[in-house]
Amino acid sequence: MTVLTAPAVLAGCLAAALSAGAAFADNSLVGFPEDHAEGLHYGTVERGNITEELYTDREAIEAAKRGEPFPSGTVITLVDYRGGDLHRYVVMEKRDGWGALSPAGTGAGDWLFREFAADGTPNPAEDGTRCMSCHRPQARQDFVFTVDRMKSVE
């Protein structure tokens, strides 16, 4: 039986994406975070009838407090409610080397983004490109808008 290490799997995915001439990063690498509710809730953003609940882990919070880049493996989950009803999940995940999966000038560091419906199924209409383009100007904060909120978590 062959056992593949994470770097070997990543290298294979990268090679496949590049050989296929991918127009965007393969966000299928970002899985649905089953344990998002067990993560640390670090913020709520309200815009009209939209409420976004933000979750991550303690290691990410501590990196933000130290002013350091987020470690590989960081997952940030946005749970989006519209009019009080669960609408979708938006997940950003950082892994060493994932930045190479995005065509030049389109990525947001080593982060990939994926949207999931309220039932946890992936939304194939969203490839993460829109998310990456919005987060790109936040490069000084490792592409994360809510670093200041993380810093205030006890």
Rank of each mutant, 00 (worst) to 15 (best):
S152D: 06
E53W: 11
Y55W: 08
Y89C: 01
L86S: 08
L14K: 15
V147K: 08
A104H: 10
P137S: 12
M1T: 12
T44K: 12
V9W: 10
H36Y: 15
V90W: 09
C13I: 15
H87L: 13
D148Y: 04
D35S: 14
D96Y: 10
G39T: 02
R149K: 14
D26W: 12
P7C: 05
A118M: 08
Y89G: 01
R130V: 08
L101V: 01
A8Q: 15
R88M: 15
A23W: 07
W98M: 06
L112A: 03
E53D: 11
S152Q: 14
T106G: 00
G107N: 03
L112H: 02
L18P: 00
V3H: 14
G84C: 07
A6T: 13
T77S: 08
K65F: 01
V90L: 14
E126K: 11
L101A: 09
G31C: 07
R88N: 15
A117H: 15
H36G: 02
G84F: 08
R114H: 07
E46A: 13
L54F: 10
P122E: 06
G128S: 07
W111T: 02
R95V: 12
D142W: 05
E38C: 04
N49I: 11
E126C: 12
G99I: 01
A104M: 11
R149L: 15
P69F: 03
R58P: 00
G105H: 08
A64M: 04
F24T: 13
S28G: 11
P103G: 09
P7D: 11
I76R: 00
G31N: 09
A37H: 08
G31K: 12
H135P: 00
L10Y: 14
D119N: 15
L29M: 14
A125T: 11
P124Y: 04
Q138N: 13
M150Q: 09
R140H: 11
T5Q: 12
F24D: 06
M1Y: 10
T51I: 13
G12W: 06
L112C: 04
V75G: 03
A8H: 08
V153H: 05
Q138V: 00
V30G: 03
V45L: 14
